[in-house]
Each structure stands twice: as structure tokens, then as C-alpha cells.
């Protein structure tokens, strides 16, 4: 299934218009397999829509190839199979709004949900599915909480369980939508380090969107700057995530410092 010669993601002039509004405009970039792309941009710049384009949720215009296929051209069955190859960690979860009366699952059961598509429709989980789920729960440091009710976990622990769920899917492409947002400092640091570690461990292609530079792991290989639906810049992180380009994107002076390989942006002063 994996073809090393074909890029993980290849977009040419991809646009999305919704209710007379341009969400994405002529977005073009190519990402090799195993790369880690960080997409940065202000709120409402189309970052989440870009992720939804890559997992086939949004019907966009233009040329689109994800893991060698165009998700828009897949039939019902093929589309479901395609989605098992793409792991998604959304920014928000419907289950979080229904914690009191929602489905009472343990941390391990939530991770196992990641195996649902892989296991096949109407087929029970095999031992292998359970072993993979337990492995990834252990990899995110929560093996001792496997039987703990999911909703009894802290916000940071729930995010780690969701990361384990995505990885249990054994995806070739992982899409992370602001995974460290709304977490305290310690939980943010843990999650950033964990994301980089599992990226190296799995060899999968990662695409992570964020508007916080310090949420990006130091190992990021590619960076893109998305502004008003346009991919303003794309290339090496050192070039793209510079104070000059970020200042142009956000329309205000920005100071970027690099500490231990990670960038931190703070408001700068007008020259």
C-alpha cells in the first residue's frame, strides 16, 4: 500500500469556497513521506479546513493527492478504508460536551476505538487489536490508567489518550489540530515531546496546525504559513517561521527566539 515514490500529500491550486467566503485559495504544496509539516497562521486562516481537506471531509476544487489517492474520487467503501490510513486528532471532541451522560468508556477502550475501522465492519476486535491499543497507551505513559474512566482523566491525560487512539489506528498520515491548546504548561510540554517522539518512532507523515510556535516540536521538517486561506510561505522552518514573515502574516511586529531548537514568538516593538 505504501509507495515511497509518491508524496504523502500533493496539493495543486486547492481552493474551498463556502457561503460566498473563500476558506482556502489556490493552496499548493507537496510533502514527502515521513515529513513533519507545521502549519501556522492566525485564527480563521483556514488551518482546520486544510486538515479536513486532507482527510477527505471537505469537497475542494483543484488537484489533490493524499497517500497517492484523491479522496474525492473514492466510493463509499474505499473512502472508509482511506480514512483508516489517516489518523486525525481534532481540536475539540463532541464527547467532552457529554461527559456526564456520555458513553462510559475506560482509557483503553477509547484507544481501542482507533482500531474500529482497521478491524473491519461487523468484525470483533482480535487479540492483535487489543495488544496494539495497549502498546500505544503505554507509549503515551498512561498504561497504569488503562481501566480508569476516560472522563475521570485530566484534560492533558485525555489528549494523550486521544493521541494513543490516533496511533493505534497505525496511520500513514497523522493530522493534529492544535493538540496542545487549552492545556497547562506541564501538559503542553509533555504533549509536544510525545508528538515528536511518536513521529520518529512511527515514521508516519505528520501535519500539525497551531497558532502557537512553542507548541511545535523542534524536529519539524517543513513549515507553512497560512493567511486568509492562502499558503503565503512554505519551506524549511528556519526560513518560514522567521520574525519578518510572521510579522507580515499577523500584521504586527513579532520577536522570535529559538530555545533548545523550539521557537517562541512574542510581541515585538515597532522599529
Amino acid at each position: 500500500m505504501v509507495n515511497e515514490g509518491i508524496p504523502a500529500v500533493d496539493l495543486q491550486d486547492v481552493s474551498l469556497h463556502r457561503r460566498h467566503r473563500t476558506v482556502l485559495e489556490a493552496v499548493s504544496f507537496s510533502l514527502p513521506r515521513g515529513a513533519f509539516l507545521a502549519v501556522v497562521g492566525p485564527n480563521g486562516s483556514g488551518k482546520t479546513s486544510l486538515l479536513h481537506t486532507l482527510n477527505g471531509r471537505l469537497r475542494v476544487e483543484g488537484r489533490l493527492s493524499v497517500l497517492g489517492v484523491d479522496p474525492r474520487k473514492l466510493g463509499w467503501h474505499e473512502a472508509a478504508r482511506f480514512r483508516t490510513r489517516v489518523g486525525v486528532m481534532p481540536q475539540t471532541f463532541a464527547a467532552a460536551d457529554n461527559a456526564e451522560h456520555g458513553v462510559p468508556l475506560s482509557a483503553l477502550e477509547v484507544v481501542e476505538l482507533g482500531r474500529t475501522g482497521r478491524a473491519g465492519l461487523g468484525r470483533a476486535f482480535r487479540e492483535n487489536d487489543r495488544e496494539i491499543s495497549a502498546h500505544w497507551l503505554e507509549a503515551v505513559g498512561l498504561a497504569r490508567m488503562a481501566r480508569r474512566p476516560f472522563f475521570a482523566l485530566s484534560g492533558g491525560e485525555q489528549r494523550r489518550v486521544h493521541l494513543a487512539r490516533v496511533l493505534a489506528q497505525e496511520p500513514e498520515l497523522v493530522l493534529l489540530d492544535e493538540p496542545a491548546s487549552q492545556l497547562d504548561f506541564g501538559a503542553q510540554e509533555d504533549l509536544v515531546a510525545m508528538v515528536e517522539r511518536v513521529w520518529r518512532q512511527t515514521g508516519a507523515t505528520f501535519v500539525m496546525v497551531s497558532h502557537e510556535l512553542h507548541h511545535l516540536p523542534p524536529g519539524v521538517t517543513h513549515a507553512g504559513l497560512l493567511v486568509h486561506g492562502r499558503l503565503q510561505d512554505f519551506g524549511a522552518p528556519a526560513d518560514i517561521l522567521s520574525a519578518r514573515r510572521l510579522a507580515a502574516a499577523y500584521g504586527r511586529p513579532i520577536l522570535v527566539t529559538v530555545q533548545h531548537g523550539r521557537r517562541v514568538a512574542t510581541g515585538g516593538r515597532d522599529a
Binding site: W76, R83, V88, E109, L121
Partner: peptide, 23 residues
């Protein structure tokens, strides 16, 4: 009995279930 894991996934979070390849 047949669709227990798919039902569990949809009950937990329908959008996540779809993303995991569940109809």
C-alpha cells in the same frame, strides 16, 4: 452483537468514528 464496536464508537463521538473509517 454484530456492530458492537461500531455502535460504541458512534455513541462515544460520531465524528471521531467517521474519521476512524466507521460508516
Amino acid at each position: 452483537a454484530i456492530f458492537s464496536k461500531e455502535i460504541k464508537a458512534v455513541l462515544f463521538d460520531r465524528r471521531l468514528a467517521w474519521m476512524n473509517g466507521v460508516p
